[in-house]
Design a binder for these strands. Structure first.
Lengths: 241, 241
DNA sequence: CGCGGAGTTGAGATTGTTCAAGGATTGTGG
DNA sequence: CCACAATCCTTGAACAATCTCAACTCCGCG
């Protein structure tokens, strides 16, 4: 399924570019600056730490990751990181180092994006449009954390799950990685549970109920929300499309 | 109980000052800049909106508030706002407008702090130490949101409640508003429930269990954690004192 | 004195967890 | 190509956590 993977050998940077462009127009020079990123790529296996302490900004070119905190005997996932997304801390970001880390949920490819934001926050940045998009990207990520708190604190499993899947659908659609409600989904039920604060068995039952209601189709490595507009209406998800 | 209220007619700004100083030293000029804030104060009744859309930075001089999202038939509180805390959005903060609002949980007094951060983000700020402290304050607030997600997603009611009370104890101690584990607590069980994602009845039962275990004392408008160090150990709260 | 809001308490219904076992899928080495 | 292990998914039953409903108490306030 070609539409589900990123672009192969050539154009690995199209996906990051589309993520940025979804947040604001880029001048053609700045488009080229993104496409021309020459930093060496890093491949990591499932489960590995995506960036070390103090690590700078990176794009996730391929695979899925998560922002997570590990506790004795339990993990809490704060957010899924999708292909094309940025990870890492902005320069001078005051969030505490111990709040979270990033982990690969599948094999992933990363590329350093430090040059794009090296002068972020200074008066005359080299890439003003990119800087604006990056800032906006972080704002979106922070907004989604508030949504996540609401899922965890104020919704039942069914609504919570639907809301999360709808969010992922939106984010994948925005960069062309979803068609007709269908998109790649390489995440197991265990991990979904660590995101939503549910046991994997309850995740299973909740997915079963969604399928039963005709709101969800699942195949190996993918998933579809055939009536996502209706579902969004039902569970109070504000669609951005 | 004099220690539980802020400083009366004179020195209303001591509390905001101490919040800032807890995050980094201020030059004596900048101390005076905080103490000398002349903006008019605003008094709001319980339940009112603390700042309108696009409102700038304010200090909460007195009373408690919360950062909250209202849903049909339910509310989710993201954070409690304590006396001396700052609220509002930093200039150029990219978080979406609809993510949350601020509401007064008791009668409150606010003061505009716009002048302290008007040039925040520019190369040569007028108050560098204050700017650093404000930035750091927001970083702490954001870090606490991650802690909150963990409470909601990965802990049982008892641990979750203890963790929250310990956080509030820490924050009040930091500015001298708690002694021997005891501090003002003008919040009802309903609101605690809206914070922790629990029904008020379950909040009641959870508090009862904490009292029973000798970890909690409650009086009208106050609360004490007589063995907070031990409790922090028990529930995995990282004490900052 | 009566009223309203908040705290208390109990019983029963729901939601979600745990434990345990069996089935499917996938990747790997022979 | 097959056997095997590892991992994930599926299912059921018992249990625990939490919610809802409903009544009752207590207290502050007019």
């Amino acid at each position: 399924m070609p539409a589900f993977s990123s672009e192969g050998r050539r154009g690995y940077l199209e996906l990051p570019l589309r993520r940025l462009q979804a947040l604001g127009p880029l001048s053609s020079e700045e488009e080229d600056a993104v496409r021309g990123l020459q930093s060496s790529r890093t491949k990591l296996a499932k489960g590995e730490d995506m960036i070390g302490p103090g690590g700078g900004l990176h794009f996730l070119l391929d695979g899925w990751g998560c922002q997570v905190r590990e506790l004795p005997g339990r993990r809490q996932i704060f957010a899924f990181v999708l292909p094309g997304d940025m990870i890492g801390r902005l320069p001078r970001d005051p969030v505490e180092e111990t709040s979270f880390s990033y982990k690969a949920l599948t094999p992933v490819t990363l590329i350093d994006a430090g040059v794009l934001c090296a002068d972020l926050g200074s008066g005359a940045p080299r890439f003003p449009d990119i800087q604006a998009a990056i800032t906006s990207f972080h704002g979106r990520a922070r907004s989604r954390l508030f949504d996540h708190v609401v899922r965890l604190g104020a919704r039942m499993a069914y609504q919570s799950m639907a809301h999360l899947l709808l969010e992922l659908h939106d984010r994948q659609t925005e960069v062309g990685l979803a068609q007709d409600g269908r998109f790649a989904f390489p995440i197991g039920q265990e991990r979904l549970g660590e995101m939503l604060g549910l046991s994997s068995m309850h995740v299973h039952r909740t997915l079963a109920k969604l399928k039963q209601d005709g709101h969800l189709l699942v195949g190996p490595g993918w998933l579809a929300l055939p009536r996502w507009r209706e579902l969004a209406q039902d569970v109070g998800y504000a669609v951005s499309l």
